[in-house]
Nucleic acid binder design. Sequence first.
RNA 1: GGACCAUUAGCUCAGCUGGAUAGAGCGCUGCCCUCCGAAGGCAGAGGCCAGAGGUUCGAAUCCUCUAUGGUCCGCCA
Length: 581
Amino acid sequence: MNLFADIRSLVLHALDAMVAAGDLPAGLSTDNVTAEPPRDASHGDMATNAAMVLAKPAGMKPRDIAEKLAVRLSDDPRVTSAEVAGPGFLNLRLAPAVWQNVAQTVLDSGTDYGRATLGAGKSVNVEYVSANPTGPLHVGHTRGAVFGDALASLLAFAGWDVTREYVINDGGGQIGMLARSVYLRYLEAHGKEVAFPEGTYPGDYLVPVGAALKEKVGDQYIDQPEDIWLGPIGDFATDAMMELIRDDLALLGVKMDRFFSEKSLYNTGKIEACLDKLDKMGLIYNGTLEPPKGKLPDDYEAREQTLFKSTEFGDDQDRAIKKHDGAWTYFAPDIAYHNDKVERGYDALINVFGADHGGYVKRMKAAVHALSGGTVPLDIKLTQLVKLFKNGEEFKMSKRAGNFVLLSDLIREVGKDVTRFVMLTRKNDAPLDFDFDKVTEQSRENPVFYVQYAHARVASVLRKAADAGIAVDDATLKSADLSKLDHAAELALLRKVAEWPRLVETAARSNEPHRIAFYLYELAGDLHGFWNLGNAETGLRFIQEDDPATSQAKIALARAVAIVIAAGLGILGVTPADEMR
RNA sequence: GGACCAUUAGCUCAGCUGGAUAGAGCGCUGCCCUCCGAAGGCAGAGGCCAGAGGUUCGAAUCCUCUAUGGUCCGCCA
């Protein structure tokens, strides 16, 4: 399925044969032997570094190994030439049939082409978004949501059994503030004058929640002390906020497999049990932390509290799990939450956090390492800030000014597909500029458009061909005579398509979905370039008048490109377009 | 004081986990539509891969130090 893996194993077999023939010492490690397309296509279709890697341990000259290897590889029908080059590279040229078969493979597999077995038999939990349930999602949450979702899809495509999870922070103090805010809206719904004190949430979105509460409970909470209503209203408000958030996520095309309530860890003994477990490992103690460096808070005083020995696992200092008054810090339930994930039996955990949680990474990894005995890797991906630009100027958002751009506003303005794709055109850990004007522009500068346009062009060809009476269903295309695809430009395009499975693997291995977006942009560029060749050289147009057989072979190539684009966009959560408007 | 991330063309960024002459887009220069959508394409100019050491057949990539920028640093979740 993966051509590069096939060629690599061909090389490895040849090396084994050399060992058997006494041309190479036995027992050499071939871990670093690669088979990859050379950067410069003029070097050939595939290059292996085997000779250079093995030269030293074998005590032989690289060129000697390479030449013997070349002879053996030449025996394979797929290899048309094997030349030693440079310091000891072995450049291979492959038979056109190898590339032509790629088109057939793609048509056979459809958008499943490129699915990998990297994660086969393994499960991974991807936790993302996890915004506090105190209001609708805004732009700040969007990048993490898109990134996490695309990463989850990528891993699923690479064979992992993926769980998408959202942890609801419904156990902390901010739920109390939410409840008070809703209470004020509730009073307002009863016609009372209210003022929002510092710390409460004055946003309009709580108005309907207050009204709904009135609907549900009538006037029973009016003039009642806080301890009567705080709990129930907190629950009521959290549910309402989660409904809001789910709606926002739906707009983005994000669907979670599981919502985990942090509150469910409280008063159930789960936190205590988990910390007991750590205590038995000798990782919990009472102590006093060093005062923070840099700016010292005005009211700082050294206090003794319960600490977790995260320094044992590389953290800079130990971390508090209990406040001075004995209440849990946020870290405590979070440890228990991750313990729960470990106990659910995942083979790997991934958390997607905003960059402002960078300081949290080490302690969380420390906790998971301790809880799983080092058996469950936790990867934490941080997403950097998104800067919005409108009319050429940066649009600053601030909590105080309350001028957040809501996720729903963003979608309304530019759409789900644009939002998702653009958010994935940067590495997760690099800041991202989101320019409202650019992202809706129809030009090469706008990668979303450019990729969509390539897909639409193929769809257009299919329509035109059908109009001309040429059968272009995939079943027919599959049986086309692909040996007609013998032009260098056609083979080059097939090579690019053939890279897809390999790209999926590397992207999945590094948890970097942005690589998909970049590859699609390149593939689209190659298609556009190829398309234009047809201007000067009519023999390269997809539709050849009066020659349905050739047309079908060429259209099969176009379809293969479109299928890969569709598969890639599928991972990114973007709908491929059949025509541009 | 410390941690994490970044530093690649005038600008915005990739760089396939160590490979051959470092790549795109924008901008600049010059070209290509009786032609499946020119909403495109081709070509040219433009680089001390922040700096200095190290690791090895080989470094933009790995390690150390330095510089600059960003994020963060008590029991807030």
